[in-house]
């Protein structure tokens, strides 16, 4: 039990609790806030794993942009809580059963099959340096250049798509 393990366990608890809170909150705004908390803990995990760049991106993009967008939409639509509906009553119990089965199976697989002594993370000090960041950037822009460009095009397409979706409404009003 070293200090890092303690940090990990505490954060894992917070992370799982906030995930559960997200799923079970009545109010969608609280759900969103729980999810933000979860994302922040995941970002801290990234830091522990020696990936500061991804950690910061996670906070900027997920917490800073995506979740704010969610909050906007929830607030604008007034969709904090929906009236209950009675369709598919058999689904909920089945869902619980299946997901718990999934969790048990996954954990069983992870802790029996994948366990080996070499699979231990040891946050490398070198990973946290400026050089490693530069190395990663070089890889991103050489080996992964094509995916990078495709991603940028995808973002552009998404942007255009959203504008088109919103524009239709305005044209109708005119």
């Amino acid at each position: 039990m070293n200090s890092e393990m303690i940090v990990f366990l505490v954060l894992a608890l917070v992370s799982i609790a906030s995930a559960l809170g997200m799923v079970f909150s009545r109010n969608a705004v609280y759900s969103a806030l729980f999810l933000v908390l979860n994302f922040v803990t995941v970002a801290i995990f990234y830091l522990l794993l020696g990936a500061p760049f991804i950690a910061m991106s996670q906070i900027t993009v997920y917490a800073g942009a995506i979740m704010v967008l969610f909050l906007f939409v929830i607030m604008l639509l007034g969709a904090e809580s929906l009236p209950p509906s009675a369709t598919l009553p058999w689904q909920k119990p089945l869902a619980y059963v299946l997901t718990s089965a999934l969790a048990v199976e996954a954990l069983y697989l992870v802790f029996t099959r994948a366990r080996s002594s070499e699979l231990v993370t040891s946050p490398d000090a070198s990973l946290n340096s400026m050089e490693s960041l530069r190395e990663m950037a070089l890889q991103l822009f050489s080996q992964y250049l094509l995916p990078f460009e495709i991603t940028s095009i995808l973002l552009l397409v998404a942007m255009v798509g959203v504008i088109v979706l919103v524009r239709q409404e305005k044209a109708g009003q005119k």
């Binding site: 995990f45 969790a103 231990v120």
Partner: peptide
């Protein structure tokens, strides 16, 4: 030193919770 299984296990749990959310929520 945290074994990577812990991270993967945590990831599995979070994934399962997400799946549960997809299944039981109507919003």
């Amino acid at each position: 030193m945290v074994p990577v299984d812990y991270y993967v296990g945590l990831s599995a749990v979070l994934f399962t919770i997400g799946a549960l959310g997809v299944l039981i929520r109507r919003n």
